Computed example of a mutant assay.
Amino acid sequence: MLPHFRPQDIADILIMTFLVYQLYSWFKNSKALQVVLGLLFLGVIYFITKNLGLFMTSWILQELGTVLLVLLIVVFQAEIRQALYRLSLLRNFFDREESALRIDLLEFSATVFSLASQRIGALVVFQREELLDDHILHGVPLDSLVSGSLMTSIFIPSSPLHDGAVLIKDNRVSLASCHLPLSVSADVPQHLGTRHRAALGLSERSDAVIVVVSEERGEVSLSLAGELQPMASAAQLHGKLTSLLQPLSPEEQRVGLKSRLFANLWPKVAILCMVVVCWLLITFRQGEILTITAPVTFHNLPDSLTLTRSYPDQVDLQLKSFSNLVSPKQLDIVVDLDLSKVKEGNNNIQISKELIKLPPGVVVVNMDRSLIRVTAERKPLREEKRRR
């Protein structure tokens, strides 16, 4: 197997590992991951039953898989759309440029803990790279600067906008009294209320940063990537928001790249092993040797000669594919010969494997002949002059 291992195979494995890990990190705290794991389990059962010759079970699972794929697209269309947006490498060219205004995060953090000391509930959403239009419902447009006095006036119980979340977008207060999707995770503690479930629900579906203040306990928490982190002081909240919302310097980005490479190492190693196993099943499950008949074509015949006869007109090739994703039967394979050195009379043209254009992963095992006899005659003088 090793002689057929190519540099492209390493790139193939690394690309799939990156994509699978991205999907895992995005949906690890959502229902979508549980559904995907269930489908993978059904796929393993289908693979086993098919190889054991259990035709009825494998047929039912195959038909069921087609129906489930359509249902997944309908049920999880929002998650699929968000995943495609996250994978888009061109979104930075079309997104709006970052506003030159900066939020005073120190004042914001002090205001949040002031609300917590007064047992006033609050829910503030910071939009980052991903758009939140599909997740946030209703809301009153404000388009105002972020200030401590504005936050306090919004969340005091006598304000008509206190019930709901505040959305900070492009460093400005964009909406107030918004409704967020609630988390459906079974791991959320029972003592957490609607605000915390809303903060977790949005962070599970996006890269947003959500600050939540508990009205009952007077505690401040930060929700990110489906996790709730308690904040002990305004200084801790300020440091966390600064690291998440403000752009990093080039030196910090280089350090961050190294740390991100080795962060969550065991999930990455597990996903890499899974991708390698799948790659081995797909790539090194060599198909049987197939014999196909390829027609013989010609090019570069001199203008002074005309081709009168060629034998044979087709060649039988024995092909072998190193991936069951490629079927030589479905390929349009021809043997194309160069006649630029042909002379008048009989010529024997050597057939080499390099003259046969094959897709990657398909090789020629054997040919029924290695020579093609070509007969060429000189064109009549009148016809040659007419062509000139």
Rank of each mutant, 00 (worst) to 15 (best):
S88T: 00
I80E: 09
N92S: 01
S159C: 09
H179Y: 14
A199M: 13
L90C: 01
L90T: 01
L150W: 09
L90M: 11
A198C: 12
L180R: 12
V124N: 03
F94R: 08
K169M: 11
A198E: 03
G193A: 11
L161P: 00
S185D: 15
L182A: 15
S147G: 01
S114H: 08
S183Y: 11
V146F: 02
S203K: 04
L145S: 06
L161S: 08
L192F: 07
G148F: 07
F94A: 03
F93P: 00
D143L: 12
F126D: 01
F93C: 03
H138C: 01
D143M: 07
L180F: 14
S159W: 10
L142M: 13
L145P: 00
D133P: 00
S147E: 05
A199I: 10
S206M: 04
F155V: 03
G148W: 10
I156N: 12
C178R: 14
D95M: 09
S174T: 12
F113S: 00
A83Q: 05
D95H: 02
R81G: 02
I103M: 08
K169E: 14
R96P: 00
M151A: 10
S159T: 03
L202R: 11
S147F: 05
H196C: 09
G148K: 08
S185P: 11
F155W: 02
E97C: 02
S109H: 04
A122V: 04
D207W: 03
I103D: 01
L200H: 05
D187R: 14
L131S: 14
I136E: 00
A199T: 03
S183H: 12
S159G: 06
S147M: 07
S183W: 13
S153P: 00
D95F: 04
V146H: 07
S147H: 06
H135T: 11
S88P: 01
S159F: 08
D163R: 15
T194C: 14
I154T: 08
V112R: 12
E79A: 11
L89Q: 08
A165K: 04
R81V: 01
L202I: 08
G121N: 06
D170Q: 09
I103P: 01
S177T: 11
H162D: 05
T152E: 11
I136K: 11
E97Y: 04
R172S: 13
L202Y: 10
A199V: 04
D95Y: 04
A186G: 14
A176V: 13
S158V: 03
L106M: 04
A198G: 12
Q118E: 06
V184S: 15
S174I: 04
S114V: 01
S203A: 09
S153G: 03
S158M: 14
E107W: 06
F155A: 05
